[in-house]
Write a protein that binds this DNA or RNA. Structure first.
Lengths: 210, 210
DNA sequence: ATAATTATGTGATATTCTTCACATTAATTT
DNA sequence: AAATTAATGTGAAGAATATCACATAATTAT
């Protein structure tokens, strides 16, 4: 399904395009030009066309892109034409907030499992119906609940060890909220979400100019 | 304080270096080479040296970098040698989890204000002691509580309007968790945190190879 | 039918970012 | 004191990414 070497940045932008297209659909917009879409996504119009060109021709010259079609095509490209099951590791403040957070479901991601090591938490049933399991049981639960992606919200100190266990349990994708660079074999793809890095970036910009 | 045009990516990496250096300090490591630091940060050693070279010379040839010194220098560069006050807008699941989340405090970020539009929430006092204010009062509260950066965790539909109000209230930095590209004047710096984009990226990688 | 208009798709160009490779400098050893 | 070793700092090369500019194709108007 993959042709040339696709820039990482292209993939991220496809997500952004899909978000905007979803909104446009809800506003019942039928057709949109790369120029207007670009403005809403805060990118260059040629960028959108280039990004799409890696995968084929999806527009109509002189007209633009059919919103619904393009959205479907992008979802197809990203592999979002199927459900993805998530397993949360670390059911603290952040973890339980994320499980309840509507955006995941809205984009087709479902938490089918949750893990912790705190005996007080293990066995508790979350509002979503998921029962918190002990991390020791990760192998079975990943198979039982068909977990595809692990989401780590443990303290940094535990993150690497958790990642190791997830990989051993057959997980190939990890979304890591711990502010540490975890090391995994090539078979596994890690994405990091670190808000404090973003805040540092804001701090820099607010400090360094005048 | 800024010299050449510094790559955005350099700034993000400086944050990562600082996280690792902080850990190294706690492990009482005195000196580290770019090679060993690079391995821990999962980057190229030359990258670290280049990144630092934008701002000066911080190492000792033949030796490496003094951990404590380098950490201080990086914090200085990023503008982290002072406290930064945050104002949360949207005290839902995610918002309140973030306010309680220890990582912000650990890196010198404090929530000194919180806003919502839900009358049920306005007036409530959070565990941290911060009282939730109505968004209408944003102008006064930003001044009173000396808020530097706004953190948006509202639904997407409200995010742009919230951003406008923050900018009018004098805020120049926004951390946006809503999955939408908000438009702001140049004086304001926005950073986006969108986990579903990261998940899409994972989905793509898990789908497209074999 | 033909011309005019519009907006895509894409080769060429420009820019930005990363890595290499080595000269430079500090410390250590002989 | 000279030679050796080690690791930084950096110009140059390379790779990746973004933008331009225009040929191409679809639609609309004459």
């Amino acid at each position: 399904m993959k042709f040339a070497k696709i820039p990482m940045a292209t993939i991220s932008r496809l997500s952004i395009y899909s978000r905007t297209l979803q909104e446009l659909m809800e506003e019942e917009v039928d057709v949109i030009s790369s120029e207007r879409l670009a403005k809403q996504c805060a990118v260059n119009p040629a960028q959108i066309r280039k990004d799409l060109a890696y995968f084929g021709e999806f527009g109509v010259r002189g007209v633009g892109y059919r919103v619904g079609d393009l959205l479907n095509q992008i979802k197809e490209i990203l592999g979002l034409n199927r459900p993805w099951n998530l397993g949360m590791v670390g059911v603290g403040n952040l973890g339980s907030a994320l499980i309840r957070h509507a955006n995941f479901l809205r984009h087709g991601y479902v938490f089918t499992a949750a893990f912790d090591v705190d005996p007080q938490k293990v066995g508790r049933r979350l509002p979503s119906g998921v029962v918190i399991k002990h991390l020791e049981e990760v192998d079975e639960v990943v198979k039982d609940r068909d977990v595809h992606v692990g989401v780590i919200t443990t303290p940094s100190s535990a993150a690497q060890s958790v990642a190791n266990q997830l990989v051993l349990a057959g997980i190939n994708g990890i979304l890591n909220f711990a502010p540490i660079q975890i090391q995994v074999p090539n078979c596994c793809h890690v994405e990091n979400v670190d808000f404090t890095i973003k805040l540092d970036s804001i701090a820099y910009h607010l400090s360094s100019n005048g």
